[in-house]
Structures are given as C-alpha cells and as structure tokens.
C-alpha cells in the first residue's frame, strides 16, 4: 500500500483496549484473575504466558466470545460483557489454526470474508485489488488457497483479518510452523499495520518475537505477572533476553499444563 494511511473509521480516543480487574472463573478454578491493563492505538502488544496461564481465556473475553465473571473491559470503546456484537465488528482475528478456506480461491476467500464483515461489493472489489497488489499475489488470485505455501496463506489471512479496517487485530500464534524468513516478513506486515494505527494484540511462543513488541505482558497463573517494554522487562529481571525473562516468571507457575 502507498504511504496514504487508511483512516480508521470511528477511531477511538484514548486506549483501544482497557481492562480493569478482568476475571473469569470456571467453577472453583480462576482462569483469569483480576487483570488490569491498557493498550494504545497503533501499539504492538505481546500477550505471553505458559500453556494454561489464562491467555486464551483472556483473549476470548476481549473478543466478545466469553462473558467475564468479574471486572470490566472495553475494546474499541465497547464493553466486552454488554456489547460483544459491536466488538466483533471492530476487531480482526487470526490464528494458526483458523484462517482461510483451502477449497476457495484467493479471491473467493477475500469476497467471503468481506461479506461476513458486511462490506459492500464495490468496497470488496477495491480492497481485493489493493490487497493482492500489496502482497504480490495478483497472479495467484484464482489459485486455491490450499495450494499456496503456508507463508503466503498466513500473510493473506492477516490481510483478510484487516479487510474491514478493524481497530484491533488479535493474533493467536500466527507464525507457528513458518520458515524463519517468512516469519520475519510477517512481522513487517505487523509493523506496517501498526504504523497505520491498527492495534496489534499478539500471542507467540517465539520469544525473539517478544522483542519486536512495543510492550509485553506475561501471564502466570491467571495474573499479569509482568507488563513493560521488552527493554524494561529485561532490566527489571536482570535478564539478557526475553527468553530468560519468560523462564524466570513461568518457572514459578502452579497452573502448568
């Protein structure tokens, strides 16, 4: 895309994500234990934690898929408990597991998701051209998505998640299994999106990727055990890299999987 930044319709003033004492219990088990944090527009926010620390539960609440047991949270200005449908229209979502339909072509996938997000046909057409040009996929428009290399699929899935100009995009381990060069190209797409004002909320098991985030939170046993810039966290824990920070925090966890 050219330098012309896409203006996000109805951009929110102040934090795009705001959680205050956000809690989720399942019976006697507290999966998310009163977490509080804010994420600014255009920030790349790394959401880390060991398996079982509560990341997925917290993310599902922020996406409006799960009602909190306590506390409040808002995403793009809407309350996660009371206005989940409004949130779903203002966010994009992509994970390694769920992204595109292999049996549809590149163009069909874009058209399908454009329809799901409620875009007009003319809008979808224009966005399809821009997207294919930006990704260098113009010649592959009629190829089945299943025939594309994994790296291209992931770049396409990310772009499709941004089709409706969401305020926030939630990425759940988006780079799993891709080669190291493609992984880095994927991060270039994240940087570009963030520079356009999209807030990027990302989980990853690659701790070198935590270094690329503006700020990183680390969940341990349902609580937010740390939240700072990568440099700040390394200083706080006297660690050489984010891997060391993570290991120091996660080793003390009780709810290990």
């Amino acid at each position: 895309m050219s330098g012309a930044a896409t203006q996000l319709p109805g951009a929110v003033a102040g934090p795009v994500i705001r959680a205050e004492g956000l809690t989720k219990t399942f019976g006697a088990f507290t999966a998310v234990d009163a977490i509080s944090f804010e994420v600014a527009a255009g920030e790349i926010f790394g959401f880390l934690g060991a398996n079982g620390a509560g990341k997925t539960t917290a993310m599902r609440m922020l996406c409006g898929l799960l009602t909190p047991s306590g506390g409040v949270a808002s995403v793009a200005g809407f309350d996660v408990g009371r206005e989940p449908e409004a949130i779903k229209r203002r966010i994009g979502y992509m994970s390694q597991k769920f992204s595109l339909y292999d049996d549809l072509t590149v163009r069909e996938n874009i058209r399908f998701y454009g329809g799901v997000y409620g875009l007009r046909t003319t809008e979808i057409r224009a966005k399809t051209e821009a997207l294919l040009g930006r990704l260098g996929l113009a010649h592959e428009r009629d190829a089945l998505v299943g025939s594309l290399p994994l790296g291209w699929k992931q770049k396409l899935a990310f772009s499709v998640a941004l089709l409706h100009d969401p305020a926030v995009v939630f990425l759940d381990e988006p780079t799993g299994g891709v080669d190291p060069i493609t992984r880095r190209q994927f991060w270039d797409l994240l940087y570009e999106a963030a520079a356009r004002g999209v807030t990027v909320f990302i989980t990853t098991h690659y701790l070198d990727e935590a270094e690329y985030c503006d700020r990183v939170s680390i969940m341990v046993d349902g609580r937010m055990a740390a939240l700072d810039t990568p440099a700040g966290l390394k200083q706080q824990f006297g660690a050489a890299d984010m891997n060391e920070v993570f290991l120091q925090l996660a080793r003390g966890a009780k709810n290990t999987e």
């Binding site: 934690g49 060991a50 398996n51 381990e173 799993g176 299994g177 098991h205 701790l207 891997n243 993570f246 290991l247 996660a250 080793r251 966890a253 290990t256 999987e257």
Partner: peptide, 10 residues
C-alpha cells in the same frame, strides 16, 4: 515441542 511453551520445551 510445537505449540508448547518455553518452560515445557526446555
């Protein structure tokens, strides 16, 4: 170790 956190991987 795919999809497994850094502690379990170690």
């Amino acid at each position: 170790t795919t999809g497994v956190d850094a502690v379990s991987r170690q």
